[in-house]
Design a protein around this nucleic acid. Structure first.
Length: 217
DNA sequence: AAGTTGCA
DNA sequence: GAAC
């Protein structure tokens, strides 16, 4: 059984949900049209393909990742970092598509973060069973800019914790077109994703794609 | 450890 | 979900 805590008496579904100070979900945010979205994703992955990276502990991440923008997030046995050159093709990351930049900026503005200028967009592909353990985004140089996370394709349960790893996370179901923005007092909150359930999405098939915009430098 | 499990 |  499920209970929607935000269901209103008037029957109008709220389009935004607060997750605490500096954090909110924007439901059904305006996305680029399907052809533009898929074409932008294809352009990125043609140049910098999805790959399963390794953590410093030597474990293979279940999520397949790539990036666009000036900086891309990478991990290997030596640690986490932002890199200007994609180590797979040994070329700079693909340019951030204008439609992605505009999406990120408008979502940030809607959530109260004006003048967001991301220089990095991590593109995460979740296949059945893929997950992301609770973690903080703390490899960026400063934390004044928010994180903007766009959900595409299959639904997933997003875990949104507190500033400490032990804080019990909220569980937020995210579907295609939902955007989560967190910054300011929420910037270092732990977050993660539960294992993806199997399914099919009209545009993205058996996958969930997550675009995570940040200012790395 | 953005991980897995000699767990519970 | 806790522990590591």
């Amino acid at each position: 059984m499920t209970l929607d805590l935000f269901d209103s008496v008037g029957g109008t579904e709220p389009r935004e949900e607060d997750l605490g100070p500096g954090a909110r979900v924007l439901r059904g945010f305006a996305l680029p049209h399907d052809a533009a979205l898929l074409s932008a994703l294809q352009g990125i992955t043609d140049a910098s393909p999805f790959r399963h990276m390794e953590t410093p502990g030597g474990f293979r991440m279940s999520v397949a990742m790539t990036s666009c923008g000036a900086w891309g997030w990478v991990t290997d046995r030596t640690g986490y970092r932002y890199a200007e050159v994609d180590p797979v093709p040994e070329r700079p990351w693909p340019t951030m598509p204008m439609a992605f930049l505009q999406l990120a900026q408008s979502a940030a503005a809607r959530a109260g973060f004006a003048d967001f200028v991301p220089d990095s967009c991590l593109v995460n592909r979740y296949d059945t069973g893929a997950k992301m353990s609770l973690h903080q985004d703390k490899d960026e140089r400063d934390f004044s800019a928010p994180i903007v996370s766009v959900s595409l394709g299959l639904p997933a349960v997003f875990l949104f914790g507190g500033e400490g790893r032990a804080d019990k996370p909220l569980r937020v179901r995210l579907i295609h077109g939902d955007v989560v923005v967190w910054g300011g007092p929420a910037r270092l909150r732990y977050h993660g994703v539960m294992p993806l359930k199997p399914g099919h999405h009209p545009q993205l098939g058996a996958h969930r794609i997550n675009l995570t915009f940040r200012k790395a430098r």
